[in-house]
Design a protein around this nucleic acid. Structure first.
Length: 420
RNA sequence: GUGGCCAUAGCUCAAUGGUAGAGCCCCAGAUUGUGGUUCUGGCUGUUGCGGGUUCGAGUCCCGUUGGCCACCCCA
């Protein structure tokens, strides 16, 4: 039996690496004053059908449950967030700064960096429409990357703004409906992939020329001051070098209204590592107008991030170090004489209650074998119980130094030896 | 969803159509109670699965499942 396609087993090393990623996510988010929350893994399919746009619905991992409900494993968190916030917003002071770490699903053919399941960090600020909030979220994203050991040489965050496109087009005399705007942005999104003649043709169908579009792309700051404001705010924080204005970045989800951004690895091998934007209307839509709050946020997945970590030596070394420490022991007990097993277990329990990580042989084994096990489990020291009793022989594995200590002094001496 | 490449031991991979192998891992030893190295020995296969061609198929053909890559799409 194998796991289902696109689903992963996490062996101990994989789990430790995952814990490392989660630990950095939590640590940096808390540093920014974000609090953690979570929602259900299974939602009514309806939640995604109307609000996220048709793109995501085609890839839902959905089914009918035993109560004849149409349900879907969550493909993203934002619709759930919008629902929860609409229902509970009065209980919280604004702005909300919330983050969440959870598993998300999609039903599609898997490929490198893209499975049917992944873990994702979501960070959102709700109830603040200022550009300061935009900058705060971007800074958070950058510091998250920095916490893994990445620098401005490893990745770049490209920033665009849907409102900027609308304003530019209006300035040029075009007034697009929401649907036409969506159509237009889809073409812009593919400018790099398609031949200029084809893009031009598609744009002409909307009454816009490729020349016009390129004019904006080459000098966006001249047409939209918000880019300058944001860039200045990032420079003040010393993070300006991480961001690049790139109007052609348009995210696929329909609900974005303002700034949108995507982080890319500069090695060019990977897809977007993270992305997000402002969605000022979504909460209002999902609550049928009962609650209207501006919001913005982003998400970053563990799969692509993990691959990027493997690509960058400094980041890879941090993970390896963490993985090694994740389950390394403090002490391994050597039971050299089986008649000392009870004495050893009594001290084992005592030491565990003090918080030390200790393991020991469950069945009788040769002393040499026990030392091998101690080494393999990463123990810093061993405590040997045998003919020396009532004294215990403590050995520091790194230095091979052995000292004889009275058993009643073991807790104190262990503390002394391992605290340094 | 479409197309191309691939599938051999737990892992990485060998094997002109002619008796399936190596390295690593794991386990056990190298004289009585001391670890990373070394040495010796041991374990492991319906060659992904199902058909077909052939005297004979890991090898050739068809199907199927799974993986990788590209396209589509994108959290």
């Amino acid at each position: 039996m194998q796991p289902l396609p696109g689903f992963r087993d996490f062996l101990p090393d994989d789990c430790a690496a995952r814990n490392f990623i989660f630990a950095r996510w939590r640590e940096v988010c808390r540093r920014y004053g974000f609090v953690e929350w979570d929602g259900p893994v299974l939602e009514p399919t309806e939640l995604y059908k109307k609000k996220s746009g048709p793109e995501i619905v085609a890839q839902l991992f959905n089914f009918t449950d035993k109560g004849d409900r149409e349900v879907a494993l969550r493909p993203e968190l934002t619709p759930t967030l919008a629902r929860v916030v609409a229902a509970h917003e009065r209980e919280f002071r604004k702005p909300l700064k919330w983050f969440s770490i959870g598993q998300f699903f999609r039903y599609e053919k898997q490929q490198r960096g893209r499975l049917r399941e992944h873990f994702q960090l979501n960070c959102d600020i709700i109830g603040d429409s200022s550009e300061e909030a935009d900058a705060e979220v971007l800074a958070l994203m950058i510091d998250l990357f920095r916490s893994f050991g990445f620098t401005e040489n490893d990745l770049r965050i490209y920033i665009s703004h849907r409102g900027a496109w609308a304003a530019f087009l209006q300035h040029q005399g075009h007034n697009f409906s929401a649907e036409r705007m969506q159509e237009f942005l889809a073409i812009v999104d593919k400018l790099d992939a398609l031949k200029p003649e084809i893009s031009d043709e598609k744009l002409k169908a909307l009454g816009v020329s490729l020349d016009l579009v390129n004019r904006f792309i080459s000098m966006p700051e001249n047409y939209f001051d918000g880019f300058n404001t944001l860039a200045d705010k990032m420079k003040v924080r010393g993070l300006g070098r991480f961001i690049t204005i790139r109007p052609a970045i348009v995210r696929g989800l329909a609900y974005y209204t303002g700034f949108v951004f995507e982080a890319f690895s500069l090695s060019g091998k990977l897809r977007a590592i993270a992305g997000g934007g402002r969605y000022d209307n979504l909460i209002g839509q999902l609550s049928d107008g009962a609650v209207s709050l501006p919001a913005l946020g982003f998400a970053m997945g563990d799969v692509v991030l993990g691959e990027m970590i493997q690509d960058v030596p400094a980041a890879r070394a941090r993970v390896a170090d963490f993985v090694r420490r994740e389950y390394a022991l403090d002490i391994y007990l050597i039971i050299a004489k089986e008649e000392r097993r009870s004495d050893a277990l009594r001290q084992l329990q005592q030491l565990r209650e003090s918080g030390w990580r200790i393991d020991y042989p469950l069945t009788p084994a040769k002393v040499g074998k026990q030392f091998q096990t101690a080494e393999a489990l990463g123990a810093k020291a061993t405590l040997l119980y045998g003919d020396e009793w009532p004294a215990v022989k403590m050995k520091t594995l790194a230095t091979r130094e052995e000292i004889l200590i009275p058993n009643e002094e073991v807790p104190a001496r262990v503390k002394q030896a391992l605290s340094s």
